[in-house]
Design a protein around this nucleic acid. Structure first.
Lengths: 189, 189
DNA sequence: TTGATTTTACTTATTAGTAAGTACATTTGC
DNA sequence: GCAAATGTACTTACTAATAAGTAAAATCAA
């Protein structure tokens, strides 16, 4: 696959999580890459097409990460930690996540893009849910509600944690990250 | 104060929490109100000016709510419930909150607007913190971390809860709301 | 008639998107 | 082995629409 195409996807994603979907233009991409506007349209005919491709790429990347962790025999604790590391890195880079960013603009997105966003979030929540449930059965985790509710609560904390940290202070995210663990780690360990 | 001005403020806020700050234009406001573009500029010379005014109005509204609850002798439990009711209503209306919406676009906002956003979030977090701490001292609440961390965690759940609920399913927010209470309500009550 | 409000009629900038052409490498027919 | 055709990766040069914003004139209300 083309290196230019890959670079556009990468830059597009970065622009979504720094300036928001409606806050960046093809000009931002082309000038940053030293190419012309039309070159971006050559690879991604429409902005919607680019957005959808970015989401598809992210879903794929997520599936690969899960597969990789399975192959490396990560336990549930390590799996959750790996997932949260993505958010810790985003916080360091002053970025929010695709979910939080596109969640804001959802009513301005095309159906295919909204669809892909839904698919991505669905997949993440489902994975979180099964990982939490499985970890609980091994006494790695301990929590009172259903695994799905716990999954939603953790994801909420991460998604908005990045947003709040960007408004207030980067260091606030570390405390949020910390308190997620405190909530689900068994007391007697 | 002018009724047109008030209506613009109201509509502007609604547009921010439905389409995002960079997803709406003065045209959206003027056509919805049946007036001309320039009439909106008469009250709010620039979009930044409108945005800043919306935030100032919201800070003021928040202060009035606090004052009102104090006058009505609301205990900490009732105060927190009142605050969360705002989010429950937003969820019913398929809206997110100003914090989540403007948090996405923060890097595209002018300094005065970013400043006002910061002030608003700061005020909310501080109020949440003192309310949680005060409620804990009366044994109305029970939690392990610092009051500030608990405040950040609750606010995160609410902010991203609305975003996730809009992507996935409205009803998911109710569970998030529920699990916030379960986290801080003393077990023996 | 004075001041507040609103429209008319613009400007300037930026947006997504397109049509046509160019440079260059690869393949195909003979 | 070589010209001709084809495909890839762009650029040049646009269009049409929409954005924020403004100046001046018209309307309205006290």
């Amino acid at each position: 696959m083309s290196v230019t195409r890959e670079k556009i996807l990468e830059l597009g994603e970065e622009l979504i999580v720094t300036k928001g979907y409606n806050g960046f233009s093809y000009q931002d991409i082309s000038t940053a890459m030293g190419i012309k506007n039309a070159a971006v349209h050559y690879y991604f005919p429409s902005k919607e097409n680019l957005g959808t491709s970015i989401l598809k790429t992210n879903i794929q990347r997520f599936e690969e990460m899960i597969e990789n962790m399975k192959n490396r025999d990560f336990d549930e604790h390590q799996q959750l930690e790996s997932f949260m590391k993505i958010y810790l890195k985003s916080n360091r880079d002053n970025k929010i996540c695709l979910i939080g960013s596109l969640g804001t603009d959802i009513n301005t997105l095309s159906d295919p893009m909204r669809n892909e966003l839904q698919k991505m979030v669905d997949r993440i929540v489902n994975w979180l849910e099964t990982t939490l449930e499985s970890g609980r059965s091994k006494s790695l985790f301990s929590f009172q509600t259903t695994a799905r509710d716990q999954a939603l609560r953790i994801l909420s904390s991460l998604v908005a944690g990045l947003q709040l940290a960007r408004i207030l202070n980067k260091s606030d995210f570390k405390n949020i990250h910390q308190s997620i663990w405190e909530e689900i780690i068994p007391k007697n360990s």
